[in-house]
Design a protein around this nucleic acid. Structure first.
Lengths: 146, 146
DNA sequence: TGAATTTATATCGCGCACGATACAAATGTT
DNA sequence: AACATTTGTATCGTGCGCGATATAAATTCA
């Protein structure tokens, strides 16, 4: 058997697994608020800057509209945001937070520290996290271009 | 706005994005073989050790049977593996590679190096990869226990 | 101006992930 | 032996991701 095909030698399997496990760690914190992790990401984008186009949000999350559109629709149904159809440009859809969407920010503000303390528990110190972040950023930037 | 809620400060968003982008990088390499990335993972598990129970595979990949079962069924339909129903224990399902499943190993053996050279292109050297791997392993081991 | 092209978003289909549930075989217990 | 519990796998429903396609509005260009 080829060494390079061993699961333990795969960076990608690690990223894939870590991503799933962290999302699972978020679940009990987000579910009481009726949020999924991707929906939480959309909210973070809109909290940084409200009233963005579908494409702006998609680009920020490195996703495509075919993922974002149904997600936004579900969030609109939940009353977290409103989608306004083309004012200037008839093709565009503007996404704006509702009061409910704004208020959620208060309720989730402690979730990040809650998670980082979970990770710190078994040895991911702040320095490691910084190094990790910059390494992953290099990976993301490399692949983004292609 | 709370600093800790900025997207750029989220390790999880990085892992989530990197995982997706690397899976996308695998796609053009795996698709000609009719494989998805999770299916490729299952094959790696079986190449390491053939004839494993559904649960063995699931545990190795840190997934659950409700994800694995339909995936294995699709792979059985493709003729990559066979699922044998309970010999010793009537509840168990044994998963075994077919000749076709075995042979695929030859065809994918260069994929890992193909990917790591893509990543090396913009500055992920072997050392960085090793550090990254061990950091992510710590994260995975921390979350696995919970 | 009219036709071709581009752009912004939406729709469709499929394959994961995963919580919840089902179910039958095995095991334990009285 | 009869019943309860555990275990191994499967099924169901929902929400992503994403390739492919559609569609309508805007832009370019002949």
């Amino acid at each position: 058997m080829y060494d390079q095909l061993k699961l333990d030698n795969q960076i990608c399997f690690r990223l894939y697994t870590a991503s799933r496990l962290i999302t699972q760690a978020y679940r009990p914190l987000l579910e009481p608020l009726g949020l999924t992790y991707p929906q939480y990401l959309v909210l973070m984008v809109l909290w940084e800057k409200d009233n963005q186009l579908v494409n702006d949000i998609a680009r920020r999350l490195l996703l495509d509209t075919n993922t974002i559109t149904p997600l936004l629709k579900r969030m609109e149904t939940q009353g977290l945001l409103v989608r306004t159809h083309g004012i200037v440009d008839g093709r565009q859809t503007l996404v704006s937070l509702t009061r409910k969407g704004h208020r959620l920010q208060e309720q989730v503000k402690n979730i990040p520290s809650c998670l980082s303390s979970q990770l710190a528990a078994n040895g991911l110190c702040a320095d490691d996290a910084t190094t990790l972040a910059s390494t992953i950023d290099r990976i993301i930037n490399t692949l983004k271009k292609q």
